[in-house]
């Protein structure tokens, strides 16, 4: 008969596996990397948890482990990129089979945030965590979380503005440059 922790692990994978991989993919932007992170996080978590944990509590620990693994990998990646300037950027997100149009755009926009900004945005808006919960989960101060969220929102708004301007330019053709308010003007 399987030990209790094994039953909890199997139940967590069966019922929440999709959600965990999706969470990891929003952070990493890569399906395979997301699965690796979740697999590692599950192994580490259930190699450590001792007594009395139910699925819900175990999931919270696994999510925390995923976030920490993501930030650790991002840090290692930054060091690697500093010493290998010609590293080729991997194709991100997926083949496009599951993400199209606006969904793909949103996933791409996320990948243009810094790792901490991305983690804060995903936890705040996809996971509905409070600032304090995010701070605890990522091991940073509440002030830092607010700063990351604010910076990330600013960047996302900027990306949207630029995309709208570009779309308006393409649609308008020779209609002239697009002003910041989104209207177009003729050539002077």
């Amino acid at each position: 008969m399987a030990a209790r922790w094994e039953q909890v692990c199997a139940e967590l994978v069966a019922h929440r596996g999709d959600a965990l991989v999706r969470y990891a993919m929003l952070l990493s932007g890569d399906e395979e990397e997301a699965r690796d992170m979740v697999q590692d996080a599950l192994t580490a978590t259930f190699g450590r948890l001792r007594n009395g944990f139910e699925v819900e509590q175990a999931e919270a620990y696994v999510r925390r482990a995923i976030a920490n693994r993501f930030l650790d990998r991002a840090r290692r990646g930054q060091r690697w990129r500093r010493i290998v300037p010609l590293v080729v950027e991997r194709e991100r997100v997926d083949s496009g089979a599951t993400l199209t149009g606006e969904r793909l755009d949103m996933a791409h926009r996320l990948q243009r945030l810094s790792p901490r900004e991305r983690a804060c945005i995903v936890l705040r808006y996809d996971e509905d965590r409070t600032v304090e919960q995010i701070a605890s989960e990522l091991g940073i101060s509440a002030g830092a979380v607010k700063r990351y969220v604010s910076d990330a929102l600013g960047k996302l708004r900027g990306m949207l503005e630029r995309e709208q301007e570009r779309a308006a330019r393409e649609a308008g053709g020779a209609a002239g440059p697009v002003r910041r308010d989104g209207t177009t003007g003729g050539r002077q």
Binding site: V21, E31, A34, L99
Partner: peptide
């Protein structure tokens, strides 16, 4: 922002629970 994030679908989980259990057992 919340709506757009939640509209991003996730991939199929594809997790290997037996590998997880084996790894966890080794740690224990």
């Amino acid at each position: 922002l919340r709506r757009r994030l939640r509209d991003v679908p996730g991939p199929r989980a594809g997790l290997d629970v037996q590998a997880v259990l084996a790894g966890a057992r080794r740690t224990r």
